[in-house]
C-alpha cells in the first residue's frame, strides 16, 4: 500500500441514504478469485442498463466525473454485506476517499485496510458537502481536516491505528504477526 497523507480532488456526490454493498458491487461480480479489475463492476446496475450499455443519466458515467477521487455519499454508506469487493471496486474505479455522516462498520474497516480513506463527518458539515457537489476538497490525514479553497474547514477523527497504517502505507497483518509471542502465551493459558 502507498502511504497516504493528503487527498486533493473534486467531489462526486451520491446523496442517497443507505447505499448498500449490493449497489456498490452486485453479487454476481463476486465469483472472482482476484481483487483487481473490479472498477468496471462498481455501481454496475446504476451505470449500465439491462443490455450492458452505459446509462447516460448516471452521474458515475459523466466525463466530468472521471478522475474524481472523493465520494461524498448519503448517510449510512456501505451497509449490508461484508464483501471487501466493495472497497476494491471503489478504489479501482478511482475513488481514494469516501465521506458520509455514517458509514457501516464492516465496510469502514474493509475500506481503511485497503487505503480507501473512510471519513465520518458531523451531520451539518456532511449536509454542506452534499449541497455543494463537484467542489474542490483537500483531505489532510496529518491534521485530520478537510478544507476547500475558500476557507471552509471540517475536522474529523480517525482511529489512531488505522490512520498510522494509512500514513505509513503498512498493512495490519504485519503488526498482528509481530504479536506472536503474546498469541502463543494466550493459547497456552
Amino acid at each position: 500500500m502507498n502511504p497516504i497523507t493528503r487527498i486533493q480532488s473534486t467531489t462526486l456526490v451520491l446523496p442517497q441514504e443507505n447505499i448498500d454493498t449490493d449497489q456498490i458491487i452486485p453479487a454476481r461480480f463476486l465469483t472472482t478469485t482476484e481483487r483487481t479489475g473490479l472498477g468496471r463492476a462498481a455501481f454496475y446496475d446504476w451505470r449500465y442498463d439491462g443490455e450492458g450499455h452505459e446509462r447516460a443519466d448516471s452521474l458515475l458515467n459523466a466525463p466530468e466525473s472521471r478522475g474524481r477521487a472523493i465520494l461524498v455519499a448519503g448517510r449510512n454508506f456501505g451497509c449490508g454485506s461484508s464483501r471487501e469487493h466493495a472497497p476494491w471496486a471503489l478504489l479501482d474505479y478511482g475513488f481514494q476517499a469516501v465521506i458520509s455522516s455514517e458509514i457501516a462498520d464492516i465496510f469502514r474497516s474493509n475500506a481503511l485496510k485497503n487505503g480507501l480513506v473512510a471519513i465520518v463527518l458531523a451531520p451539518d458539515q456532511h449536509a454542506e458537502l452534499l449541497a455543494r457537489p463537484g467542489i474542490e476538497l483537500c483531505i489532510d490525514l496529518e491534521s485530520m481536516s478537510i478544507r476547500d479553497p475558500h476557507g471552509w474547514r471540517a475536522g474529523f477523527t480517525l482511529d489512531a491505528f488505522a490512520r498510522r497504517c494509512l500514513m505509513m502505507g503498512v498493512d495490519q497483518l504485519g503488526y498482528l504477526l509481530a504479536q506472536r509471542a503474546a498469541i502463543e502465551a494466550f493459547e497456552e493459558r
Partner: peptide, 12 residues
C-alpha cells in the same frame, strides 16, 4: 469480517 481479516485470522 472482510477478506483482509480472513487472511489475518488464517495467519494469526
Amino acid at each position: 469480517i472482510g477478506t483482509s481479516e480472513v487472511g489475518h485470522v488464517l495467519a494469526s
